[in-house]
Each structure stands twice: as structure tokens, then as C-alpha cells.
């Protein structure tokens, strides 16, 4: 279908206009996807939370509350933007865009199906890691420029946390890159199509890497039990205390998009992306996005499960966990993976 549109565009327009239109179409498609994913993940979180807490969750707006988050978004869009007079205006306004744009950029390299991937570069994994760590600058800016002590503490915590857990995310993905020998996401999936999912190929070290990735990924997205950045019982609302209306919504949406991105990476690297389990529906193209969605929602559900059951860590325990346990384990795991590959023990 994508190819048909592409061909049709190039047949009716001059080349430059066709590429431009194509780019605009892609941008619109991704922005829509972005909004839909963000809003419905919020709804999913509320439903999951309600399920864990023996409540019903949103069920008034639309069937099963499907339009609840739409209504919330409308409210946030129409709300007055309040801010502090003593804030550093420029940085204060810049921060939400930093957070939301990086989340959007990171989405561009994720292969949703075999053909739906905006930007298939040969350093895909590296690009994802690099972009996703820029988001923290937005949080730091927001916390610093709000001129609020709670925000500042939250921002500093966020900086410390992201710098630490970035390492674990990177190293655990590196373990898997050892196995595939490529950083390009489409090639990683092609590899899995041929030899089976990486989590099976790499067995023990891959499972360790996956667990580390999930822990570090949850920490990267600042979600419970690593939500020290917001920590509402300690810091009020943390770094976004002073934000309101749409600016707050940007932070809020970015959190969910980041969660989606982490889940997508996990699915792409460990669980074969849009591939069906053991190739059972290999020929059916329209099932590809469904398989992808099912896997992503599974991982996201796991992350929500963490959030609604675990208490929050303390800042020193958070750092201890990373530097004293996860990092050494990760380094060891890379060596184990290298040995496994060297000896040909992969499945």
C-alpha cells in the first residue's frame, strides 16, 4: 500500500513536489500516531491501574471510557497557561518541546512493520540511545528554569538517574548487537526472521540482558519504582510542578511515548519486532502491525504492573542498584555473550 501511494505520488507530480508531499504525509502520519498512542496509553494505564486497584476506571465518556483521554486532552489544550513570573521564560517554554520532540524523533527509526519505518539508518540502535538521552535535558531545563526548589530537586534527580541508567540500557542492547553483528534495526529483524528471536538465540545471556533492559528502561522513562523525578509524596509533582495546560500535557504525553519507545526497542531487539512467533503467520502482511502491537502492549503492561505494585526506591538505593549491581552484571554478561558466540552455543 505504501508503495502504491509512493508510485502514484511520483506519477502525478514533479519529483521535488512528490518528495515534499511524501514527507508531509509521513509527518502527519507520525504525529497522528504519536497523539493516538499517547492518549490511548494514558487510558490503558488508567484501566490497568483500576484493574489492579479493584476499581472500574474511566467508563463514562464513550463506550468503556474510550473518549475519556480525548476529553482530558481537550481540557488541557483549552486551559490557560499559567507560569511563574520569576521563571527563566525562554528555557521554561523551551523545556516541554525538548522532551516531546526527542520522543517523536526516536519514534522515527522504529520498524512498525516490514515497510512502515520512516528512517532506516545503519546505526539505528545507536541513534535511538543517543536521541532518547536528549530528553533528559528537557527535564533538567524545566526543573531548573521553573525557579522552584521541588522542581530543582526533581531535575537533579532526573539528571543523575538518566546518566546512570543510560549505561545499562546501552550495554544490555550492546550484548544483543554482539549476536546480530549489526546496528540497523531492519537487519536485526531480518536476522531474527532467519534464526529465530534473539531472546531464544542468545538464551541465558539474552534473558539477563532483557531483564537489565527492562529495569533500566523503566528507570529511563522515570516510571515507578524509579519515579523519583516526580515522587509526588516527596516533591509534589517534581520537575513539572510549575507547568500547566498544554505544557504539562507535553511532559505527560512524552512519558507515555517514551514508555512506548522502550517497549518497542525491547520488542524489536528481543522479541522479533513484527515477526510472528516461530513464523506461524509469516506470509500475512496485515498481521505484522498486529503482532507488533500485541508484543508492545505486553511489555507496556509489564511496566504498568511494576508501577502499580512496587514502592519507590530512594535516591541512594537507585544509584547503588545501577553502579554496584546492574553495571558489573552487564559487563559480565557481555563477556558471557561473547564466549557463547565464540563457542557457537547460540540456538
Amino acid at each position: 500500500m505504501i508503495k502504491t501511494i509512493h508510485d502514484w505520488l511520483f506519477s502525478v507530480m514533479p519529483e521535488w513536489a512528490a518528495s515534499l508531499t511524501e514527507m508531509v504525509l509521513i509527518a502527519v502520519f507520525y504525529l497522528t500516531l504519536f497523539a493516538v498512542i499517547g492518549l490511548y496509553l494514558v487510558l490503558l494505564e488508567r484501566k490497568v491501574a483500576a484493574w489492579f486497584q479493584m476499581r472500574k476506571g474511566p467508563n463514562r465518556v464513550g463506550p468503556w471510557g474510550l473518549f475519556q483521554t480525548m476529553a482530558d486532552a481537550l481540557k488541557l489544550v483549552t486551559k490557560e497557561l499559567t507560569g511563574t513570573t520569576k521563571a527563566d521564560k525562554f528555557l521554561y517554554n523551551l523545556a516541554p518541546y525538548f522532551v516531546i520532540v526527542t520522543a517523536l524523533v526516536a519514534m522515527s527509526v522504529i520498524p512498525f512493520t516490514q515497510s512502515v519505518q520512516a528512517f532506516d539508518i545503519n546505526i539505528g540502535v545507536f541513534f535511538l540511545l543517543a536521541v532518547s538521552s536528549i530528553g533528559v535535558i528537557g527535564i533538567l531545563l524545566g526543573g531548573w528554569s521553573s525557579n522552584n526548589k521541588y522542581s530543582l530537586i526533581g531535575a537533579m534527580r532526573s539528571g543523575v538517574q538518566t546518566i546512570s541508567y543510560e549505561l545499562s540500557v546501552g550495554l544490555s542492547l550492546l550484548t544483543m548487537v554482539l549476536l546480530t553483528g549489526t546496528l540497523q534495526l531492519s537487519e536485526i529483524i531480518a536476522n531474527q526472521q532467519e534464526h529465530g528471536w534473539l531472546i531464544l538465540q542468545g538464551h541465558i545471556p539474552a534473558i539477563i540482558a532483557f531483564m537489565i533492559f527492562m529495569i533500566a528502561g523503566t528507570a529511563e522513562t522515570n516510571r515507578a519504582p524509579f519515579d523519583l523525578v516526580e515522587a509526588e509524596s516527596e516533591l509534589g509533582a517534581g520537575f513539572h510542578t510549575e507547568y500547566s495546560g498544554m505544557k504539562f500535557a507535553y511532559f505527560f504525553l512524552a512519558e507515555f511515548i517514551n514508555m512506548f519507545i522502550i517497549a518497542s526497542i525491547a520488542v524489536t531487539i528481543f522479541f522479533g519486532g513484527w515477526l510472528s512467533p516461530f513464523g506461524i503467520t509469516e506470509g500475512i502482511i496485515w498481521l505484522q502491525p498486529i503482532w507488533f502491537t500485541v508484543k508492545v502492549v505486553g511489555i507496556i503492561f509489564l511496566m504498568m504492573w511494576f508501577r502499580w505494585t512496587f514502592p519507590r526506591l530512594r535516591i541512594d538505593q537507585l544509584l547503588k542498584l545501577e553502579w554496584k549491581y546492574l553495571l558489573p552484571l552487564n559487563l559480565m554478561n557481555i563477556v558471557i555473550m561473547a564466549i557463547v558466540i565464540w563457542l557457537g552455543w547460540t540456538i
Binding site: Q53, M54, D227, A231, W308, F310, R312
Partner: peptide
Amino acid sequence: MGMDVGALTTYFLAFR
């Protein structure tokens, strides 16, 4: 207590 240490579900179990 659960809420203060970050586990939000406790509140609802307690209220039940």
C-alpha cells in the same frame, strides 16, 4: 504509608 513510599495500590486495598 504505602502511598508515601510510592506504592499506590495499597490505598485502595485499605479502603476496601
